[in-house]
Design a protein around this nucleic acid. Structure first.
Lengths: 142, 142
DNA sequence: TATTGTTATACTCTATAACTATA
DNA sequence: TATAGTTATAGAGTATAACAATA
């Protein structure tokens, strides 16, 4: 069977991304967090008091789709809100949220190490810079 | 604003993949094909008479989800079926399907060239091999 | 019995518009 | 007027189970 797409870096990019995301999702199951939830908790941990709209900018998620995610994290007592003004709040991690994030962060870092361990020196040296360039290529702004 | 995820190759992999897929989808709009439809047509073009189940294996799509995609391509007179036995057919491209695939293939190849043009020598040399390794890492079989 | 393809269904993710309340 | 957040909704993409027809 011939796979003409297997020669295209763009196709390989998608398949590699899907494979790694599926792997990370499985690894994060013990934390009861999805990959996006782990990302949200980690960003809040590093940016205490961040607002939803800023979270949306960083993760490129529409605000309408962020609302139910934050609501779920709040319902599970992982995230709290401190009013900033009448229309926005600063998000913070509860102590449970901090513990959950710490565990997820360990798993995410181990995942990265396992990924890089698969790559040879000539493959890994330019890997992250290449990805950053392509990411920026898709974002004509900035 | 601190983005702790921006240091993780796995996160960059996902962001780069999403950015490139969105760009390709926009570029393919003139063909009235989605990225997956362009992939399907291309695989059929290079594997005349392929069965749906084989297409599913190559693209890692569940057979239940392939059915409506092929039905749509058939309805649009891009793909036809030749009976193989009582339970399966070989897929082929109609002349319209061939023309459509050829146009999409040109766009996909131009897309790949534009991608690679963004990368420096040290970035591009190990890029595809790295992606293949990660893809295989997620597929313990074979 | 196993395989091919279909149907039905549900769940997630994403995208848009309209709404509120505040600034 | 613009912004932050919410609600409702529609469209993809994906996952499973059950089924018919055939090997």
């Amino acid at each position: 069977m011939i796979d003409p797409l297997a020669t295209l870096p763009g196709y390989l990019l998608r398949r590699a991304s899907n494979a790694m995301m599926a792997m990370l999702a499985r690894e994060l199951e013990v934390t009861c967090l999805t990959t996006v939830e782990a990302s949200i908790l980690t960003i809040i941990q590093f940016n205490d008091g961040i607002r939803q709209v800023e979270l949306c900018q960083i993760l490129d998620i529409k605000k309408a789709n962020m609302t139910p995610r934050i609501a779920s994290l709040e319902k599970r007592r992982l995230v709290g809100r401190k009013p900033i003004d009448g229309r926005s709040s600063g998000l913070f991690l509860t102590s449970l949220g901090q513990a959950c994030q710490a565990q997820a962060w360990q798993i995410m870092q181990a995942h990265e190490r396992a990924m890089l361990a698969q790559l040879g020196a000539s493959e890994s040296v330019g890997f992250a810079p290449a990805l950053v360039r392509l990411w920026q290529m898709g974002n004509p702004k900035t």
